[in-house]
Amino acid sequence: MSALRSAVVLGCAMLATVGPAAACAGGGHGGGSRGGGGRGGTVVRGGAVCDDVSDVVGRIQCRRFGDWDATNTLPIFFEVGTSARALDLSSWAGTGTASHDNRNHSFSLRAGTLAPRTPLLGVVARAGWMLGRWAYVGAQLDVAGTALDGPATATNGLVETPRAVAGVGVGGFAGVMFQHGAFTARAEVMAAVDVDVLTFASALGPCNGTATSTFLHGRIEPRAALEARVSPWTSVGVMGGTNALDTADWSASVYVRWSLRSYDGTAR
């Protein structure tokens, strides 16, 4: 595992960008994812407004009969929620450049500078497809961030102080689910690519600005979830998991889940 972790850390790329401060010119960068009720009604179809004067089948013009037919509905589900992650920033290392007074200045971030478990808060959105009664696959997008407060690193008079970290993760997941009554238990694995951006306050003498360093790394996260059904189409759930590539990273979320099919179309 340590070799795997080392490979991931080595695989991380670091990019640094310095935004121009109000008093300083220049910039720089470095290197380092339903049923028809109701009378009539107005339907917008193909960009045109269609007014129905009748809600009797055979006289309805704007809607097709059978829009309630579930066989036309894909077994898709959507989830949105809040997320919390702990990110191991201690392994982050790299070099970059900051620009002050139209000159580039190198700086470095050494491993161990940042906290090993930095909590991030954010939001997560997922979409998935049921594969029969028990299995599913899907994709996830999560965004999270938090403020940091140092510690500052100084390199040749250039002082870089970490102020915030924000991450965007894009990945896919596959899992199995077991339903019992109003509850559903899920076990899944997600593979994702995370882009985490570290923002620094950059200072060189009287010249102040900001710098951002971007880290790219992978995440393979086994997770478990428990959901409670609040309607045939809606559930609320909690999910948690740990990054198998860096067990100091973990994530948890509270979410709402919608299925286009009631009971995910799995009830017998």
Partner: peptide, 25 residues
């Protein structure tokens, strides 16, 4: 007989615990 000038009335599947309303002539 149900008036169905467009021949659109067909059997379908109503989702579990779903409810619909249809008016026929």
């Amino acid at each position: 007989h149900i008036r169905d000038p467009r021949g659109e009335v067909h059997a379908g599947t109503l989702d579990g615990r779903a409810q619909i309303r249809q008016n026929f002539e």
